[in-house]
Structures are given as structure tokens and as C-alpha cells.
Computed example of a mutant assay.
Amino acid sequence: MKKILVVLTNITRYANTTEATGLWIGEATEFVEEVTKSGFEVDYVSPKGGFVPVDPRSMKYADESTFSIYESEDFQNRALRNSMQPSDVNPNDYIAIYYTGGHGVMWDFPNNPELQQISLTIYNNGGYIVSVCHGIAGLLNIKDKNGDYLIRNKKITGFTTTEEILSTKKSIVPFLNKDIAIEHGAIFQKARAFRSFVVQDGNLITGQNPFSTREVAKKLLTNL
């Protein structure tokens, strides 16, 4: 059985501030819990490899299942301390790549050519590109073999401008997901703020916000 590759951020704080950010913990742990209990193995990669910070705000929402994975030696070692570098990854080993969120990803996901190539290879092999919340940033700039944006004419979703405003981060983030998605030709869909919402278009599966994580995982599993 092929594995699922989970992508995490290396960014520790919002640019030009001393405010901490990083991985939104539940967007990793809830997804991992769902897919591993269905028998899939996961690996963890980040743009630079190595250390992955956790957004301290996300720990306020951690439940027992999140803590169970977060505290495990496997997650601490393979995800948070020693995530793989993109150069360590053989994309042919994976049936899906999953981009987690947390505001940090908006700085290190969009313009990483190695992760883009890994994603495109998995996709061209018949696998799935999956994201939740700000993780959509990893999809925005992927181009196909013809040089077109992969999301062009595709229905997708991600953290919305309204949710960014309600999170009081609109003035800090380097761009707005919806704006870039539309600029690159995507059909951006959304539901009410902070409600679970998932969109599938072919082999792209995207979730709007942290509350969509388990539904994203279940949608992927249904396809697999």
C-alpha cells in the first residue's frame, strides 16, 4: 500500500513581528488519526526539513486525540524534530500529498519548486493533492506540463478572507488565498466562516478551515 505525504511548515513567526505561528496542530493530528486508522502510513516533509514549530494558539483547541498523537514519540521525532527535506522524498512512494495549514505556510509553501514537483508527480501518477485551510497556499502556484496553473478551472476552497478578518490576521498575511486562487483561474468556493466545508474536483481535495480536517481525510479515504 502506498503512503501519504504530510507537508508541514518551518515558519516560526509572522514576518516582521515577534508573534509566533507555525503548524496548526489539529490539521496534522486529526488527518493523521483518520488515515492511519484506515491502514495508511504517513511520512512528514517540510520545505527545509528538520524542525517544525507548532502555532501556540492551536494548542488551545487540542483534544485528547490530538494530544495522543502530539505526545507520541513517532510524531515528535518524525514530524516536529526531524521532518524530511523534499530531496529525501520519492514521490512514486505516495498515493497522496496533504498540505496542512497554520499561517506559517503562507511564507514557505507557495514558492517551493521541489514540493511543487513532488505534488505534480503524485497527481500525474493518479494520486491526490489535498489541503486544508491555509494549506491551499501549496497548491496556488503548481503548474502542469503545459505551464498552466493546476488549479485553473478547478473548484477549490481554503481559508477565506472573512475568516482572515475574524482571526485578526488580514493585515499581517502576505496575500489572501481567495484572491490568488481566482487570479490563477480557480473556481473558489466557500461556506460560512469556521464551518466544515470540503470541495473535491477530480484528484484535488481541499478544505476551508481547521474544522474541515477530518472531513478532508474521510473524503480522501473514500476515494482511496
Rank of each mutant, 00 (worst) to 15 (best):
E183K: 10
S196T: 14
I4A: 13
E64P: 10
S46H: 11
E64R: 15
L120N: 05
D88T: 05
I151P: 02
T29N: 13
V45H: 07
F197K: 04
K145F: 01
V132H: 09
E41A: 09
G102F: 07
D93G: 05
T213Q: 09
M1P: 08
F40C: 00
N125S: 07
A217Y: 02
S58F: 06
V45Q: 08
N153Y: 06
A15M: 13
V105M: 02
K218I: 01
T29E: 10
L176S: 07
E163S: 09
V7H: 10
I187P: 00
E64T: 15
G185A: 11
E34V: 04
D108M: 05
D179L: 06
I172F: 12
E164R: 03
G185Q: 08
L120Q: 03
L5A: 13
L5V: 11
R78I: 00
N141V: 02
F51I: 14
Y70S: 13
K178C: 04
N177T: 06
D108S: 08
S58I: 14
N77T: 12
G147L: 02
G50H: 08
M1C: 09
H134Y: 03
I156R: 01
D43K: 02
L204Q: 02
D93P: 00
A62V: 15
L224T: 03
F109Q: 03
F67A: 14
I25S: 04
I95S: 07
G135E: 03
L150P: 00
T9C: 10
M84N: 10
G49R: 06
G207Y: 01
N16W: 03
Y70L: 15
P110V: 09
D43E: 09
T18V: 14
R195W: 15
K155C: 02
G202C: 04
F75Q: 11
R152N: 05
